[in-house]
Design a protein around this nucleic acid. Structure first.
Length: 222
DNA sequence: ATCCCGAGGG
DNA sequence: CCCTCTGGAT
């Protein structure tokens, strides 16, 4: 299934705009519960205004809030960015660390964000379990876990390590383009023949509800 | 488990 | 109106 998806989305990549590890880290923090398109609308002005960890550490709170407001959660994200700048200056000499254990100690940085930075700025293979990835691999029947760390380990055991970053990209692309949360376009899906969730009623409201709330059994019937 | 929070689709 | 969008901290 992975190979078919990889052939379907050979151009899959991180769609956040960035030119440095710090920019990617900031963009990824802003992407929480927001679309990459919206994040890319605010980051040019943000990156132009703040170029170093020290500049985030000393930034004016209300100014940052206005710059990132449209991405949602703007007070919490502003708080994260200022504290992130402080933490980078105080503990990492102003540089973005390239190790998972270090990244997850930073304010506003969880495992998902850390893997995005590692995979796309440092070339370290990692599985990014976001809302799309979790939903799709459960539909695929690759795992029934809902805890992101358990999903990461279960899927990691199925796919070679060198493919982990691209796997994350193609699964997320598939989630955005075809295997939507609410109304998956199974008719356009290249792996429908292997998918336990295929044909379980994208037109049936109750089935669709179960599909999106992850209550769907791996295989309905025979 | 709950909060943070805005914008767009259906 | 309700749901979703590349989550994280309490």
């Amino acid at each position: 299934m992975y190979r078919v998806l990889a052939e379907r989305y050979p151009y899959a990549h991180c769609e956040l705009d960035f030119s440095t590890p710090l920019e990617l880290l900031v963009a990824t923090i802003l992407s929480a519960q927001s679309t990459d398109v919206r994040v890319n609308q605010v980051t040019p002005a943000l990156f132009s205004r703040y170029r170093t960890a020290a500049e985030y550490a000393g930034a004016d709170r209300s100014e940052v809030e206005e710059l990132i407001r449209s991405t949602g959660f703007f007070r919490a994200k502003t708080d994260s960015l200022l504290k992130l700048g402080q933490a980078l200056v105080e503990r990492f000499d102003g540089e973005v660390p390239g190790r998972l254990d270090d990244l997850v100690t930073l304010p506003g940085v969880g495992r998902k964000t850390a893997h995005v930075v590692l995979g796309n700025a440092f070339g370290v293979p990692g599985i990014t379990v976001d809302t799309h990835f979790g939903r799709l691999v459960r539909r695929f029947g690759w795992t029934e876990e809902t805890d992101p760390v358990k999903v990461e380990h279960a899927v990691g055991a199925l796919i070679p390590r060198r493919d982990w970053t691209m796997l994350s990209h193609v699964v997320i692309f598939h989630g955005r383009r075809t295997c939507h949360a609410r109304k998956p376009a199974c008719g356009a899906c290249p792996i429908a023949r292997w998918c336990p969730a295929y044909g379980t009623g994208e037109t049936d409201p109750e089935r669709a509800r179960k599909l999106l709330t992850y209550e769907l059994a791996p295989k309905a019937d025979g």
